[in-house]
Amino acid sequence: MSEINYPIKGSCQCGQVTYQLFAAPLMVAACHCRQCQKLSTSAFSITAVVNVTDIEFSGKMSDWSRLADNGNTNGAKFCPGCGNRIYHFNPSYPDKIKLKPSTLEDTRVIQPSMHIWTSEKQAWFKLPKDLPSYEKQPF
């Protein structure tokens, strides 16, 4: 794989929200919880944890939140035009966001370093043996 050059541009489907990622994610997780299955309309959702100082957004975003099983607030920012999720956040940790990296122009950074909430994974999906996996939220 060739070297990834930062910044990497990203956007929602309609282009109303754009951003630049200036540094590599701290980690990338494949989440198998039922909420992420609903969000992605697939077996799991990919999340890249990044420092808020490593990303810059342009365009108006709407937000939505829900209370997670562990009691944390799971907030989401999305484009009000096309509805595309851009990132999630926990107000208790304002220095980090959970970027939805499939919105990046260069998606080579989408290399999961772990699988989480495997207790809710689809039965047909086989977890890779070379990555850590956790039945619930490890952090």
Results as ranks from 00 to 15, higher is better:
residue 133 S to K: 08
residue 64 W to K: 01
residue 111 Q to S: 13
residue 122 Q to I: 12
residue 13 Q to M: 15
residue 130 D to A: 01
residue 91 P to L: 04
residue 58 S to V: 04
residue 78 F to L: 07
residue 127 L to R: 01
residue 122 Q to F: 03
residue 124 W to A: 10
residue 13 Q to T: 11
residue 65 S to Q: 14
residue 115 H to G: 06
residue 104 L to W: 13
residue 137 Q to C: 11
residue 66 R to D: 12
residue 31 C to W: 02
residue 121 K to R: 12
residue 45 S to R: 03
residue 135 E to I: 01
residue 76 A to K: 04
residue 136 K to C: 04
residue 127 L to P: 07
residue 63 D to A: 09
residue 63 D to C: 08
residue 46 I to G: 07
residue 74 N to M: 13
residue 93 Y to N: 12
residue 8 I to N: 05
residue 6 Y to V: 04
residue 30 A to P: 02
residue 62 S to A: 14
residue 42 S to V: 02
residue 31 C to V: 07
residue 34 R to T: 11
residue 65 S to G: 06
residue 9 K to N: 15
residue 125 F to C: 07
residue 1 M to F: 03
residue 34 R to P: 00
residue 20 Q to A: 13
residue 129 K to M: 12
residue 56 E to T: 08
residue 83 G to S: 03
residue 43 A to G: 00
residue 80 P to H: 03
residue 90 N to A: 10
residue 4 I to Q: 07
residue 107 T to K: 13
residue 3 E to K: 14
residue 18 T to E: 13
residue 41 T to Y: 08
residue 131 L to Q: 03
residue 87 Y to A: 07
residue 121 K to W: 09
residue 66 R to W: 08
residue 125 F to W: 10
residue 103 T to W: 05
residue 116 I to M: 04
residue 51 N to I: 02
residue 49 V to I: 14
residue 58 S to Q: 12
residue 57 F to Q: 05
residue 89 F to A: 04
residue 21 L to M: 09
residue 117 W to R: 10
residue 98 K to M: 14
residue 118 T to Q: 06
residue 101 P to E: 04
residue 124 W to M: 06
residue 23 A to S: 14
residue 89 F to S: 01
residue 130 D to G: 06
residue 67 L to R: 00
residue 66 R to L: 12
residue 54 D to N: 07
residue 2 S to K: 11
residue 112 P to V: 03
residue 25 P to A: 08
residue 45 S to D: 12
residue 36 C to R: 13
residue 134 Y to F: 15
residue 108 R to Y: 01
residue 77 K to S: 12
residue 39 L to R: 06
residue 75 G to F: 02
residue 90 N to L: 11
residue 62 S to P: 05
residue 51 N to E: 15
residue 12 C to I: 05
residue 66 R to T: 14
residue 109 V to A: 09
residue 100 K to C: 10
residue 124 W to R: 13
residue 96 K to I: 11
residue 93 Y to P: 05
residue 102 S to K: 14
residue 124 W to N: 08
residue 64 W to R: 08
residue 16 Q to C: 04
residue 135 E to G: 08
residue 88 H to S: 10
residue 121 K to L: 10
residue 94 P to N: 12
residue 51 N to Q: 14
residue 15 G to W: 04
residue 38 K to S: 13
residue 10 G to V: 02
residue 67 L to G: 00
residue 33 C to I: 06
residue 134 Y to H: 15
residue 14 C to A: 14
residue 118 T to F: 00
residue 30 A to I: 00
residue 127 L to A: 09
residue 24 A to Y: 09
residue 48 A to S: 11
residue 95 D to A: 06
residue 84 N to R: 02
residue 114 M to V: 01
residue 2 S to L: 09
residue 43 A to V: 12
residue 133 S to A: 04
residue 127 L to Y: 10
residue 131 L to V: 05
residue 104 L to S: 07
residue 124 W to H: 15
residue 136 K to G: 09
residue 48 A to W: 11
residue 45 S to K: 04
residue 41 T to M: 09
residue 109 V to F: 02
residue 68 A to K: 12
